[in-house]
């Protein structure tokens, strides 16, 4: 009896150890790239994610040596707080176990945490990094914010000065009034 309990005890320990070893190996295999943001913060990022960034791909094409972790790839137009958000987004969307509903919830929360200025900042960063999925998500989200808003809201949102004379503006509003386009 005693012998038996002994052996059953050591069994799981052994597998856990093996599992741990395996994990270590996969972690070693998952190569990382060093990215440096405009405010000089360096990030070690999984290559599988970093290589989704068009700007990183392009940099590595020009200077392949940077794929060795020692050299940081500079991201001139991305600040660290934006890169943190971008990585959060891609880690979630890359996560194999994430279901459609998880992603939807994540996207909603992700948006809710951003104010309009941060949203535009992030769009600029996504554009610079050339990350398609996030770029589409952000442009679509901004479109959703403004789609039912009035012209004045849109001007404020984007910081646009009205360069029409009052007469011109009235004329354009008249032009589309028949189509039931409301100008609040």
């Amino acid at each position: 009896m005693a012998e038996e309990t002994e052996s059953t005890k050591t069994e799981p320990l052994k597998t856990a150890e093996e599992e741990f070893k395996k994990l270590e190996i996969t972690e070693e295999e998952e190569s990382e790239l060093k990215l440096e943001t405009s405010d000089h913060v360096t990030f070690m990022v999984e290559a599988s994610i970093a290589m989704k960034f068009g700007a990183v791909q392009q940099y590595l094409e020009v200077s392949p040596a940077a794929s060795a972790s020692a050299t940081a790839i500079p991201l001139h137009n991305v600040a660290s707080r934006e890169l943190i958000l971008i990585l959060e987004y891609y880690r979630m969307h890359d996560w194999v176990d994430a279901g459609e509903r998880d992603l939807k919830e994540f996207d909603e929360r992700f948006l809710k945490d951003l104010n309009y200025e941060e949203l535009k900042e992030l769009l600029l960063a996504a554009n610079y990094l050339n990350v398609e999925k996030l770029f589409n998500f952000l442009t679509k989200s901004i479109a959703n914010i403004i789609r039912n808003k009035d012209v004045e809201f849109v001007r404020t949102f984007f910081g646009i000065d009205n360069d029409y004379t009052p007469e011109e503006e009235a004329a354009y509003r008249e032009e589309n009034a028949w189509a039931g386009v409301k100008f609040v």
Binding site: N148, V151, R155, F158, D161, Y164, R173, N176, K182
Partner: peptide, 10 residues
């Protein structure tokens, strides 16, 4: 329809 409205933005 939003685009037609936003022609007036600038």
């Amino acid at each position: 329809r939003s685009l037609l409205r936003f022609k007036c933005v600038c």
